[in-house]
Nucleic acid binder design. Sequence first.
DNA 1: CTGAAAGCGCTTACAG
DNA 2: CTGAAAGCGCTTACAG
Lengths: 337, 337
Amino acid sequence: MIPTIRDVAKKANVSVATVSRILNGLTGYSDKTKQKVLSAIEEMGYHPNAVARSLNIRRTQTIGVLFPAVSNEFSSALLHGIEEYAHSCNYSVLVCNTSVDGNRTMRYLQVLREKQVDGLLFVSETLQEEYIKALEPMRVPVVLVASETDDPRYPFVKVDDRKAAYDAACYLIGKGHTELAMISGTRGDPIAGTPRVEGYRQALLAHGLSFREERVAYGDFFYESGAAALETLLKQSKGITAVFAASDEMAVGAMNYASRHGIHVPEELSIIGYDNIRLAGMIHPPLTTVNQPLLELGQTAAGKLITMIETGSTVPSRMIPHHIVERQTVRDMTIRI
Amino acid sequence: MIPTIRDVAKKANVSVATVSRILNGLTGYSDKTKQKVLSAIEEMGYHPNAVARSLNIRRTQTIGVLFPAVSNEFSSALLHGIEEYAHSCNYSVLVCNTSVDGNRTMRYLQVLREKQVDGLLFVSETLQEEYIKALEPMRVPVVLVASETDDPRYPFVKVDDRKAAYDAACYLIGKGHTELAMISGTRGDPIAGTPRVEGYRQALLAHGLSFREERVAYGDFFYESGAAALETLLKQSKGITAVFAASDEMAVGAMNYASRHGIHVPEELSIIGYDNIRLAGMIHPPLTTVNQPLLELGQTAAGKLITMIETGSTVPSRMIPHHIVERQTVRDMTIRI
DNA sequence: CTGAAAGCGCTTACAG
DNA sequence: CTGAAAGCGCTTACAG
């Protein structure tokens, strides 16, 4: 029914080997043969079967991407970068939404292994021992995005979270703020939690300010938790003039809390976020924040993975530069009005 | 190196046929044989090769999903629903970001065809003649999501855009507004453009209000265009008290314009959006909008596609119910204060 | 420049 | 209950 390479060969009066060579741009056939074959392909509407090809060459030109959650701006911007780069290199991407569920992750790993993906990208997820055990025998390259590990077999691509948080706090201090507070992401999160608190702390100390436990509240990176965290901070401590939130969503949640309670941003309270997702520019006043180049992170990670796949060698990890995007939520206290 | 079914068979002293039967849960082997085989599999760390299997059974348990743009809340919520449902049915999903580019779409179609996907989902894209020509010989089911066609071979899953827009306008009218305006999406867009303007128009007429061209401005669904559209409306026509925006992003853009120009929402201007993406609940004041159940749209579409794949029959299209989510951007004019 | 044949790792009648 | 063998649609030495 659907024509195969065999049918094409028959029609063009050549062997399948010749058709295969032409299809793959190899050498070893006359121009006349090539024309014959090409027109047979055209006439029959032949399309090669990549599954058969993959079985032979043991390459599927497909990578698997595991996300803890797919439906937020952060993930989708990364996915965009990954897909774009992969497509430009002729790779397809299989998306897997693990829902932060270890069991789902393990099942996906199984599926991806059986489907013979050429490589794997772990987004925003730390490599559990269990995953490593499953990954090892798969013998395919793995790259982490917006995550980190010290196992050299698994390179990662991310922003320097500690430094970015340090810079955010310094920015606030540079604007004359001395009464800082922080809305952290999930307590103990080894990637986007602890390092950002640590960077914030170091910035305070570097400027002779004291780090006060009651001036750190913990959320979960999502919008809803931002308001609750600000409420906690305001209850626990008086005199705060600026807060650093470890995600834009939490920053916006905090801004809403402020707005509902008649606290003016930035006049009475300054806020700086983290991520620079589109949301940051959509609210009023627009949010000053730390830019994570998500598209670039995705592209770079896909690039590293594909390099590893195609060269068989391992590549170094990479810190992508961040920067602060100044908008309108931080008051400059050094200017007297 | 990596064990195959052959190695397992050898180790367990049975034929590959028997191993295959056990692997696939067929009948025709003793319990003793089963144990022998299972422990051989265990010992060797054998994992079946789905590519080889696919070549045989000509099913890949993979579907392709084409998006015009992947990095926005709308697409990612749909993707979430699609991926979730597909995964629950043991299908994997290959994402393709067409960037609203016909050439890219055609190339993806080619790749997906070669990779032998079992079915295709078109998200927010109309089926061009060119696509249909490429789709036809692929002989796999196709379902449209948040889009529409009258070709019965391609079922679709969407909200009734005309009716939803009608309801949005009626909601405004029900709140006592008579001076309505609309921020439409892309002019002439056959799915999310024209039908929404038409629904809005019909609602006006049904209530004895006149539809005035100068009270419709066109954006492109995205944030940036919302502000410009509101500016245009306000310049073209005096006395507007309420506006219906054909997307939440444009509604928020309009709210920002209002805020920057000292126009209070909802006291001086009411706004209703369309989509109910998370953004709608994150801004201040929170946006009243038309809810499109995106997760459900995605799930339903994936369900229909998989049904078509597995039964070989075609399924009917489906309109998913929408509803209005009342928040705080529409003033009730029927209440005297 | 070209073809016959083995093989990629499975599944599935068919025969016993 | 079990196995030998053909076949899925390709690629790739090998030989000429």
